[in-house]
Design a binder for these strands. Structure first.
Length: 314
DNA sequence: CGCTTTTGACCGGCGC
DNA sequence: GCGCCGGTCAAAAGCG
């Protein structure tokens, strides 16, 4: 894990990138980039990645940083790294491979987190949640464990500039652990979705190199809509609910709304590690602090890769 | 009182 | 085999 963090820090961050800017990314390569700023109203980042994720990233870098060939290497190195991993495409559906999530591998950085030990506890106790986890980690044999690893839920990590560690994303989370992070003075917090039979997890940690940056990693897919009684942001809840009703209907306007609602921005990366993460800085509005993280990043990701974030009940 | 957070213990995986 | 590390558990404490 420490190596991954080092890798992450060695990557060049995207800077000054708002969601709105992301929305305006062209789908084509940088060479064809430059249509006088015209952007279709229904344009979405999902379109961008789905049509040509690599080109999208190149364009993104080109547009936001004013660089192209050298910074493209940043992305390429990510791709190379990712190509070593075992990507489960049936889980991620339409997710493009170059920015895809993986539900597996990462054996090195993430040892089986819900394997034998969880069962041990389950046998001793056993509440509703663990009963659910039982479904995914019932078998304990070594081969089963390996299979389990391969079937690990896809993970999505991204970085966000925020003053608060735990960002409001519309769902309710319960903290179940906190660990010191190696090579970092900031701890990592572990959260679980509080909804019954939903075992989505997320990890939150603050970047050691840039303390203004929060690294959030989601794992798993919610099997339920967003809670309507979202604390602190009924507007966000309404937006999320609408989003839930019409997955994939994300439009340019919605994106813009989301960006401004969240008061920030995020550039997402999918994988099981942080090495693919990049972030965009929030707009430099000193008065926007209280509006931080009303939700946005997660919804953004959910729109980009709906199959990862939302799993319909059978 | 019910829910959430804190925190030390514990476990499995992995590298040496 | 041993130690390190990431992840999880669960009792206790905190909070509204």
């Amino acid at each position: 894990m420490s190596n991954e963090i080092k890798d992450l820090y060695s990557y060049q961050y995207l800077s000054s990138l708002s969601l709105y800017e992301l929305m305006n990314l062209p789908t084509s390569t940088p060479s064809s980039y430059g249509n006088n700023g015209f952007v279709p109203s229904s344009y979405s980042l999902a379109d961008c990645f789905q049509s040509s994720p690599g080109a999208a990233y190149d364009s993104l870098l080109h547009k936001t940083l004013g660089v192209s060939p050298s910074s493209s290497e940043v992305f390429n190195s990510l791709v190379d790294q990712e190509s070593k991993h075992d990507v489960t495409n049936d889980v991620i559906g339409e997710t493009p491979t170059r920015v895809s999530a993986s539900s597996s591998s990462s054996e090195a950085d993430l040892p089986g987190e819900d394997s034998g030990k969880s069962q041990r506890k389950r046998e001793l106790v056993g509440d509703g949640r663990e009963e659910n986890q039982n479904q995914s980690s019932k078998k304990v044999g070594k081969t089963k464990k390996k299979e389990e690893k391969k079937q690990r839920e896809p993970r999505v990590s991204f970085m966000t500039k925020s003053e608060v560690d735990h960002l409001e994303d519309g769902y309710r989370w319960r903290k179940y652990g906190q660990k010191a992070v190696k090579n970092s003075i900031y701890p990592r917090s572990y959260y679980r979705c509080t909804t019954q039979r939903c075992n989505v997890k997320k990890r939150v940690e603050r970047s050691f190199q840039d303390p203004t940056v929060v690294i959030t990693t989601y794992e798993g897919q919610h099997n339920h809509p967003l809670p309507t009684n979202l604390r602190g942001s009924s507007a966000a809840a309404a937006m999320y609910s609408a989003d839930f009703m019409t997955p994939g209907s994300f439009t340019h306007d919605m994106f813009r709304s989301s960006a401004y609602t969240s008061g920030g921005s995020a550039a997402a990366a999918l994988d099981y590690g942080y090495e693919q993460s990049s972030y965009g800085s929030v707009n430099a509005n000193p008065n926007a602090h209280q509006e931080y993280r009303q939700g946005g990043e997660y919804e953004l990701l959910k729109e980009i890769f709906p199959s990862i974030f939302f799993k319909q009940e059978p």
